[in-house]
Structure formats: C-alpha cells, structure tokens
Design a binder for these strands. Sequence first.
DNA 1: AAACCGTTGTATCGGCGCGATACATCGAGT
DNA 2: ACTCGATGTATCGCGCCGATACAACGGTTT
Lengths: 196, 196
Amino acid sequence: MAKTDVLTLAILGMLSEQPLHGYQLRKQLGSELGAFRALSYGSLYPALKRMVGSGLIAADANEAEDAHAATSRRSRIAYRLTDEGKKRLADELASAGASSWDDDAFDVRFSMFDKTDSATRLRILEGRRSRLAERLEEVSESMQQRRERNDAYTTELQRHGLERVEREVQWLDQLIETERSAPGGNTKAATGGENN
Amino acid sequence: MAKTDVLTLAILGMLSEQPLHGYQLRKQLGSELGAFRALSYGSLYPALKRMVGSGLIAADANEAEDAHAATSRRSRIAYRLTDEGKKRLADELASAGASSWDDDAFDVRFSMFDKTDSATRLRILEGRRSRLAERLEEVSESMQQRRERNDAYTTELQRHGLERVEREVQWLDQLIETERSAPGGNTKAATGGENN
DNA sequence: AAACCGTTGTATCGGCGCGATACATCGAGT
DNA sequence: ACTCGATGTATCGCGCCGATACAACGGTTT
C-alpha cells in the first residue's frame, strides 16, 4: 500500500471537484489552504508527474472545446482523476489518515471535511487535539527546566508559542463540541452556526 | 557578501555562548526556539560541515581534559566560533536582517534580541508587523472573493488562520510599544528581570 | 499597427531540509 | 553479565523551494 503524502492528497481533493491545469491548481491550493500558501512549481509539476506515473491522475493535453481554431494553441495540460485516483481519495477520506495530525496534513484533511462522515471528522479532530496536547506538555516542560538560563526575550518567545498552541486546542475543542452536538452533518453545512 | 541563512545564523548565535557538540546544539536549538523544534541531523551535520568549510566555525576534536585515558575515547567534536564567525554574527545582529521577517527567521532573530540594540529591535519588529499586515490583506481579500465557492469547513479554516495572524499582529504591537517606552535596554534585562 | 505589459502556462536546476537508518560508546539499573 | 536509554557522529534518498527560463495570450498605450 503506497502511502499518500500531503501534497498528493491535496491535489486529489482539488481535482475531484473538476479537472484543472497545473497553474490553476497552484492558485486554488494557495488561496484555499493555509498550507501551500506559496506552493512552488518546483514541487507541483514533479508531483503531478509522479502522480501520472503512479496512475492516480491522467493528463489531457489541450482538447479544444471550440473546433474552429484547430492549429496553433499554446500548450496546456488539464489533469483529471483516474478511477484509481478516485479510489485512493475515497480510501484516504475514510481512513482518518493516521498522520493527519501534522500541521500541514491537518489543514489539508480539514478542508475536505465535507467529503467525510462525522465519525471520521471526530477522530481526526481528536487526534489532532491530543497531538497538540503532547506538544504542549513537552514545550512547557522544557520551559520549566531552562527558565533560569534563558534571557527575557527567549522566554517571551516560548510563552507566546505556548499560548498559540493553547488557543489552537481551544479552537479544536469548540469544533469537537459542535461536531458532537450536530453529528448529522454529512455534507455541507456544519460549523458556522446559524448565520444562513 | 555571502548571505547567511536561518540555520547558520541560529548556530552562530548558539555557539557564541559556548562551544557545543552537534548533539547538544540540536537539543538547545530544539528547546529554545519555536523554529527548529525538530531539527534533524540530516540538516545539522551538513550545515556544520558547510560552516567549517566557509571558515565561520572550527572543530575541536575531543581534547581530553583528563590525561589518564589516552586511547579509546569516543569521537566527539566541539564546535566554536572563529573570528570570522564572530564578525559575521556581529554584522548580522546589526543589520536588521532584510529577511528577518519570515516565520522561522523572525523567531531566530527574536531569540537574539538581547544581543542587539534597541533601534534594530524596533526595525525588526516593525518589519515583521508590516509583513504580517500584508499577508492579512491578501488572505482576507481572497476570502472575500471565494466566499461563495467554499464549503463551511474551508471557510472556518480560513477564518481561523486569519484570526491567528491577527493575534500575532497584536502581540507585535505590544512588543513595539514596550520597546518604545523602554528603549534603554541594550543587553540583558528587559521584561523578566535580572537574575545574574 | 506596433510596442508594451501583466497574466496564464509549462518546465527544470541546484541546493538544502527531512526522515530513516546505521553505528558506537557510556552510565545506570537488575 | 545484560539490557536499556542517552549521547554522539554520519550518510542516503527523496521531496520541496526559490530562481529562472521560455512562450503565448489579452489588453492598453502610443
């Protein structure tokens, strides 16, 4: 079982909505996710090539929907999911990821929550939460130990880092609670509350 | 003028306190900074090798302070700054970094604030602040544009990301204000206190 | 019409960071 | 004596990033 890295998963998710060119793919990933804020072509194109190689996606080279301009045409390649790609995505969406708990991986996984069932959502949220709790433990412990040795600025930096993680945990707690109290939400409509 | 990358700068800073082995260096960097939380040996040792090559640091291979055990001895290498390394660090500390505004670079630079004068501190804080403000602009703009197209979870992810950056800005504002009202702090002693 | 320029679009290269892995020694506990 | 964890150095493959190059398209300016 080849394991699916974060970028591959993100691309699978994007392409499941509609076929896209590399260029468009990059823009979408950049604007939609926190991760991949500035995904470089040096990562993207090789990744696409890998995915074509492993049969997850296919490259449709420039099919003109308008028949009138047959010649010329600048080179553009639209990528779409293959059946194998769809299967892989479905597997991944059902699996709670095992490693959906890293900073980037969680973001990607979270942005696909509307494609997942409530149970899986909860497992991911809780996994992420406990991962952050661990880090909280580690960091605050090492802060205690070296409290004397550090200067004021380093201490402040650590304190701020800690606070950021704590707030992340609070955010997760909120999401977990919402998910528990409204488990029915399979697709679309869940978090925001009742603004629409 | 060879430019100094983040890792190199962090190592220079660490070694300016005392000579250290690669192993110790890694632990210190991991616990002290937010960046380099889990710096790998695959990055560290090559970096040290590069720095020796460019003359910034020197490697003292295992000088036994106890003379009695002459043979055996496990291999340990203590690294220390050369004069050139000290000069490079001083230059870097005075320069406000030009690129001390990335996430990681800022953390490293901030942890060395007690080695810098107040004017430089302010310039770095303000540089970082305006960098974050830019990002704030971009993200909230792209949120407006794609508000309709995104599902609730993606929207929530973006909202949370935005909030995190906003809080970061508030933190910086606080630091800037403190720095302005108490500019005297040149070295050691700023917020925390004077324990030694 | 010609010149310019920003956006769309594909692609590669060198350098570097990461995770895994290997190997070796030391001190302490059972 | 044996195991186990911490200390310590080192490398390999692979993926990512930043820079860079090339090219065609659409729009505005002159």
